[in-house]
Simulated assay, not measured.
Amino acid sequence: MKNLTLAACAAAAALLSACAGGPMAMSQPFDQGMLPAAVQVPTGHKVAMETVGAGDITYECRAKAGMAGQHEWVFVGPDARLMDRSGKMVGKYYGPPATWENLDGSKVTATQVAVAPAAAGSIPLQLVKANPAMGSGAMTGTSYIQRVATRGGVAPASACGAANLGAKEVVKYQADYIFYKPV
Protein backbone atom coordinates (compact mmCIF):
# COMPACT_ATOMS: atom_id res chain seq x y z
CA MET A 1 0.00 0.00 0.00
CA LYS A 2 2.83 2.39 0.88
CA ASN A 3 4.51 1.77 -2.52
CA LEU A 4 1.18 2.39 -4.28
CA THR A 5 0.77 5.70 -2.40
CA LEU A 6 4.35 6.74 -3.25
CA ALA A 7 3.78 5.84 -6.91
CA ALA A 8 0.56 7.86 -6.98
CA CYS A 9 2.33 10.86 -5.41
CA ALA A 10 5.18 10.61 -7.92
CA ALA A 11 2.72 10.44 -10.82
CA ALA A 12 0.82 13.47 -9.50
CA ALA A 13 4.07 15.42 -9.09
CA ALA A 14 5.10 14.56 -12.65
CA LEU A 15 1.71 15.70 -13.96
CA LEU A 16 1.86 18.97 -12.03
CA SER A 17 5.37 19.73 -13.27
CA ALA A 18 4.29 19.02 -16.84
CA CYS A 19 1.36 21.42 -16.42
CA ALA A 20 3.64 24.16 -15.09
CA GLY A 21 5.56 24.18 -18.37
CA GLY A 22 2.66 25.50 -20.45
CA PRO A 23 -0.98 25.03 -21.30
CA MET A 24 -2.42 21.57 -21.18
CA ALA A 25 -3.89 20.10 -24.31
CA MET A 26 -7.66 20.33 -24.63
CA SER A 27 -9.76 17.37 -23.73
CA GLN A 28 -11.87 15.51 -26.28
CA PRO A 29 -14.46 17.51 -28.27
CA PHE A 30 -16.77 19.14 -25.80
CA ASP A 31 -19.97 17.40 -24.73
CA GLN A 32 -22.82 19.72 -23.61
CA GLY A 33 -24.29 16.93 -21.51
CA MET A 34 -21.30 17.09 -19.17
CA LEU A 35 -22.07 20.68 -18.19
CA PRO A 36 -24.47 22.15 -15.64
CA ALA A 37 -27.70 23.19 -17.38
CA ALA A 38 -27.09 26.89 -16.61
CA VAL A 39 -24.04 27.07 -18.89
CA GLN A 40 -25.29 24.85 -21.72
CA VAL A 41 -25.74 26.58 -25.07
CA PRO A 42 -29.37 26.65 -26.27
CA THR A 43 -30.32 24.31 -29.09
CA GLY A 44 -29.93 25.73 -32.56
CA HIS A 45 -26.22 26.49 -32.22
CA LYS A 46 -23.17 24.43 -33.21
CA VAL A 47 -19.51 24.49 -32.22
CA ALA A 48 -17.57 26.74 -34.60
CA MET A 49 -14.19 26.84 -32.83
CA GLU A 50 -12.57 25.36 -29.72
CA THR A 51 -9.66 27.09 -28.03
CA VAL A 52 -7.54 26.94 -24.91
CA GLY A 53 -7.00 30.27 -23.20
CA ALA A 54 -3.89 30.48 -21.02
CA GLY A 55 -2.66 33.59 -19.32
CA ASP A 56 -3.27 35.96 -16.43
CA ILE A 57 -6.14 37.51 -14.55
CA THR A 58 -5.51 40.77 -12.70
CA TYR A 59 -7.22 41.54 -9.40
CA GLU A 60 -7.18 44.81 -7.43
CA CYS A 61 -7.63 45.35 -3.70
CA ARG A 62 -10.65 47.63 -3.30
CA ALA A 63 -13.09 48.74 -0.61
CA LYS A 64 -16.21 46.57 -0.51
CA ALA A 65 -19.19 48.49 -1.84
CA GLY A 66 -21.53 49.53 0.95
CA MET A 67 -19.41 47.85 3.65
CA ALA A 68 -17.34 50.48 5.45
CA GLY A 69 -13.90 49.32 6.55
CA GLN A 70 -14.03 46.08 4.55
CA HIS A 71 -11.95 45.23 1.49
CA GLU A 72 -11.81 42.56 -1.20
CA TRP A 73 -9.91 41.46 -4.29
CA VAL A 74 -11.90 42.57 -7.35
CA PHE A 75 -11.55 41.10 -10.84
CA VAL A 76 -9.97 43.70 -13.16
CA GLY A 77 -9.47 41.77 -16.37
CA PRO A 78 -7.89 38.90 -18.30
CA ASP A 79 -4.89 38.75 -20.61
CA ALA A 80 -4.61 35.36 -22.31
CA ARG A 81 -3.47 33.71 -25.50
CA LEU A 82 -6.03 31.60 -27.36
CA MET A 83 -4.64 28.42 -28.89
CA ASP A 84 -6.23 25.75 -31.06
CA ARG A 85 -6.14 22.03 -30.19
CA SER A 86 -2.64 21.66 -31.67
CA GLY A 87 -1.28 24.47 -29.47
CA LYS A 88 -1.02 27.04 -32.28
CA MET A 89 -1.91 30.59 -31.24
CA VAL A 90 -5.13 31.69 -32.97
CA GLY A 91 -5.99 34.80 -31.00
CA LYS A 92 -6.14 36.55 -27.66
CA TYR A 93 -8.58 37.27 -24.86
CA TYR A 94 -8.37 40.53 -22.93
CA GLY A 95 -10.43 43.20 -21.23
CA PRO A 96 -12.25 45.11 -20.06
CA PRO A 97 -14.53 44.77 -21.78
CA ALA A 98 -14.04 41.03 -22.20
CA THR A 99 -12.88 40.69 -25.81
CA TRP A 100 -11.99 37.59 -27.82
CA GLU A 101 -9.88 38.54 -30.84
CA ASN A 102 -8.79 36.22 -33.65
CA LEU A 103 -5.46 36.71 -35.43
CA ASP A 104 -7.48 37.56 -38.57
CA GLY A 105 -8.54 40.80 -36.80
CA SER A 106 -12.16 39.84 -36.13
CA LYS A 107 -13.23 40.21 -32.51
CA VAL A 108 -16.26 39.88 -30.31
CA THR A 109 -17.41 41.10 -26.90
CA ALA A 110 -20.19 39.41 -24.95
CA THR A 111 -22.68 39.64 -22.10
CA GLN A 112 -22.68 37.06 -19.31
CA VAL A 113 -25.72 34.79 -19.30
CA ALA A 114 -24.82 32.36 -16.50
CA VAL A 115 -22.07 30.88 -14.34
CA ALA A 116 -21.71 27.53 -12.61
CA PRO A 117 -19.21 26.35 -10.00
CA ALA A 118 -15.96 24.76 -11.14
CA ALA A 119 -13.42 22.69 -9.22
CA ALA A 120 -12.05 24.23 -6.02
CA GLY A 121 -9.42 26.86 -6.79
CA SER A 122 -10.73 27.52 -10.31
CA ILE A 123 -12.82 30.35 -11.73
CA PRO A 124 -16.44 29.42 -12.52
CA LEU A 125 -17.70 27.93 -15.75
CA GLN A 126 -19.44 30.61 -17.79
CA LEU A 127 -21.83 31.11 -20.68
CA VAL A 128 -21.87 34.44 -22.52
CA LYS A 129 -24.02 35.70 -25.39
CA ALA A 130 -21.89 37.32 -28.07
CA ASN A 131 -22.48 40.83 -29.35
CA PRO A 132 -22.17 41.34 -33.12
CA ALA A 133 -18.58 40.77 -34.23
CA MET A 134 -16.28 43.59 -35.23
CA GLY A 135 -14.35 42.95 -38.42
CA SER A 136 -14.76 40.04 -40.78
CA GLY A 137 -13.30 36.63 -40.01
CA ALA A 138 -13.49 33.70 -37.63
CA MET A 139 -15.48 35.62 -34.97
CA THR A 140 -18.18 36.73 -37.44
CA GLY A 141 -21.49 35.11 -36.58
CA THR A 142 -20.43 33.94 -33.09
CA SER A 143 -23.58 33.58 -30.99
CA TYR A 144 -22.33 32.12 -27.68
CA ILE A 145 -19.03 31.44 -25.93
CA GLN A 146 -18.59 28.93 -23.12
CA ARG A 147 -15.74 29.01 -20.62
CA VAL A 148 -15.21 25.45 -19.41
CA ALA A 149 -12.44 23.21 -18.04
CA THR A 150 -11.16 26.08 -15.90
CA ARG A 151 -7.94 25.82 -13.89
CA GLY A 152 -6.81 28.51 -11.45
CA GLY A 153 -7.65 32.17 -11.82
CA VAL A 154 -9.33 32.74 -8.46
CA ALA A 155 -8.71 35.88 -6.42
CA PRO A 156 -5.41 35.97 -4.53
CA ALA A 157 -5.24 34.42 -1.08
CA SER A 158 -3.07 37.28 0.19
CA ALA A 159 -4.50 39.92 2.50
CA CYS A 160 -6.47 42.81 1.06
CA GLY A 161 -6.99 45.71 3.43
CA ALA A 162 -6.58 49.44 3.99
CA ALA A 163 -2.78 49.04 3.98
CA ASN A 164 -2.68 47.73 0.39
CA LEU A 165 -5.77 49.39 -1.07
CA GLY A 166 -5.24 49.78 -4.81
CA ALA A 167 -2.63 47.00 -4.98
CA LYS A 168 -2.90 44.70 -7.98
CA GLU A 169 -2.04 41.02 -8.16
CA VAL A 170 -1.86 38.78 -11.20
CA VAL A 171 -2.83 35.09 -11.07
CA LYS A 172 -2.35 32.42 -13.71
CA TYR A 173 -5.31 30.64 -15.23
CA GLN A 174 -6.37 28.39 -18.06
CA ALA A 175 -9.77 27.64 -19.59
CA ASP A 176 -11.27 26.16 -22.70
CA TYR A 177 -13.30 28.69 -24.72
CA ILE A 178 -15.87 27.07 -27.00
CA PHE A 179 -17.33 29.35 -29.70
CA TYR A 180 -20.78 28.67 -31.19
CA LYS A 181 -22.64 29.90 -34.24
CA PRO A 182 -26.30 29.40 -35.21
CA VAL A 183 -27.05 26.20 -37.13
Rank of each mutant, 00 (worst) to 15 (best):
G141A: 05
S106T: 13
A120Q: 13
A149P: 06
S143G: 12
A120W: 05
W100Q: 14
T150F: 10
G105Q: 14
A133L: 12
Y144T: 09
V108H: 02
T111Q: 05
I123Y: 04
A116P: 00
I145Q: 11
T111L: 04
P117F: 01
Q146T: 03
S136K: 15
Y144G: 09
G141N: 06
A114M: 00
Y93G: 09
G137C: 14
T109Y: 03
V148W: 05
A98H: 08
M134Q: 14
T140F: 01
K107T: 01
V148K: 12
G91L: 01
L103D: 15
V128Q: 08
N102R: 15
P117H: 00
S136A: 14
V115Q: 04
P96R: 08
P132L: 07
T140N: 03
A149E: 11
A149H: 13
N131A: 09
K88Y: 00
K92C: 07
Q126T: 13
A138S: 08
P97Q: 08
A149R: 13
A98R: 11
K92S: 14
A133N: 12
P97F: 01
Q146P: 07
G135F: 03
S143R: 06
K88V: 12
G135V: 10
P117I: 00
M134L: 14
T142A: 06
Q112K: 08
G137Y: 05
Y93I: 10
M139V: 09
I123V: 15
K92W: 01
S122M: 09
G141V: 09
S122P: 13
Q146D: 07
N131G: 04
G135Y: 08
A114I: 00
